[in-house]
Each structure stands twice: as C-alpha cells, then as structure tokens.
Simulated scan of single mutants.
Amino acid sequence: MRRTSFSHWPCSIARTVDLLGDAWTPLVLREAFYGVRRFDAFQRELGISRNTLADRLRRLVEAGLLDTRRYEDEPPRHEYVLTEKGRDFFPVLAALTRWGDRWLAGEEGAPVVLRHDRCGHDTEAEVVCAACREPLRADDTAMRMGPGFPDRLRERPEVRRRFGVD
C-alpha cells in the first residue's frame, strides 16, 4: 500500500511524522538511547522482523539520525550510533513518555523513570518557553506564520484566519 508523503508540507509536525510516524521508528530510536547498537540486538529487544528493522535503520541513517560504524571486517558488520541530530530527538521521546505515563500507565505506575544524572533526581519532561522558561500550555500559546511559511499560502483567507492575520 502506498502511503502519502508529508515531507514537503509547510509544517514541521507533518515533516517529522513523515520520517518518524510509524510505530517502529521511535522504538528503534528508544533502543538506541538505551545503548543498543547492533542489528541483532535491536531485533531481539523489539521482536521486529529483519526486513522491517533493516528498512527503519536505513531510513534513520539516510535522514542523519543514526550513523554506521564498522565493528568487524570479516564479514563486514556495522553498528548504529546516534548522531547529534539523533540525540536531539531525546526530548521528543521524553515528552511522549511523560504523556504516556500520565494517560496510559496503569495503577502500577510508570514502566520507566527518567533520572537526571546531573542533579540525581527522578524527573519528567517539561516543555518550557525558551525566552522566559515558563511552561508552554496550549491555552497561552499562539501559532504564527514563520519565515518558512510558503508565500502561495499566505494570502489565502482561511490561512489568514487560522493564524489571526487581519
């Protein structure tokens, strides 16, 4: 089945979902953050088919979230390591974890707890304003057209209404 590509939409959420929006890709990244690096270990931990895993790893390498490093010459074998771009995905996983812990965890509580090594405390993700450090909440945050918003859409009346442009 052919899937719709969102890679060229003028929306960072759509573009991100296009790359990472299937169920396996964030789980592969989660395992990479847990320290998994080798194909067989990813497969064992996730119970994922070899062809699906190979596809997800290839896509993550092509997108620059993972890089490959040879660890054996005969036969040639590679491990997968997070790049700077890949490590920058951690706050997204932490935010998904916080939401899942709040809304989907059972009575037994969170299955995994984040510990901040610098201060030694258990913690959870919190999205804050980069300027004032206050938590970002939907009720007190507005969306505006950014510099990358396509000119062809800026003048459409429904778009102008959505973004509160007079």
Rank of each mutant, 00 (worst) to 15 (best):
S49G: 15
S49F: 06
R50I: 05
R50W: 05
N51V: 10
N51Q: 13
N51H: 12
N51F: 08
N51A: 09
N51D: 12
N51Y: 10
T52K: 14
T52I: 15
T52Q: 15
T52V: 15
T52N: 15
T52M: 15
L53V: 10
L53R: 09
L53G: 08
A54D: 11
A54P: 01
A54W: 08
R56S: 15
R56V: 14
R56H: 15
R56Q: 15
L57Y: 09
R58S: 13
R58H: 09
R59E: 15
R59W: 10
R59I: 07
R59Y: 07
R59F: 08
L60N: 03
V61D: 08
V61E: 13
V61Q: 09
V61G: 07
E62D: 15
E62G: 05
E62W: 06
A63F: 13
G64A: 13
G64I: 10
G64K: 12
G64Y: 12
L65R: 10
L65T: 06
L65C: 12
L65M: 14
L66P: 04
L66R: 08
L66F: 01
L66T: 03
D67F: 01
D67R: 14
R69E: 13
R69L: 12
R69D: 07
R70V: 12
R70S: 13
R70G: 12
Y71M: 08
E72I: 03
E72W: 07
E72Y: 07
E72Q: 15
E72M: 06
E72A: 11
E72D: 06
D73G: 08
D73N: 05
D73K: 05
P75C: 02
P76E: 04
P76Y: 01
R77K: 12
R77L: 09
R77W: 02
R77S: 06
H78I: 06
H78W: 13
H78A: 12
H78E: 14
H78L: 11
H78V: 14
H78R: 14
E79M: 12
E79P: 02
E79G: 14
Y80Q: 02
Y80M: 02
Y80A: 02
Y80I: 02
Y80E: 06
V81N: 03
L82W: 10
L82M: 09
L82H: 11
T83V: 01
T83C: 02
T83A: 03
E84G: 13
E84Q: 08
E84L: 07
K85E: 07
K85T: 11
G86C: 05
G86W: 03
G86V: 01
G86L: 05
G86R: 04
G86Q: 06
G86M: 06
R87N: 03
R87A: 03
D88F: 07
F89G: 03
F90C: 01
F90K: 04
P91A: 07
P91D: 12
P91K: 10
P91S: 09
V92F: 10
V92D: 03
V92M: 07
V92R: 08
V92T: 10
V92Q: 02
L93W: 08
L93G: 05
A94F: 00
A94V: 00
A94K: 04
A94G: 05
A95L: 11
A95N: 09
L96A: 11
L96D: 04
L96V: 05
T97E: 11
T97F: 00
T97S: 08
T97P: 00
T97Q: 10
T97K: 11
R98C: 00
R98E: 01
R98Q: 01
R98L: 00
R98F: 00
G100V: 00
G100M: 09
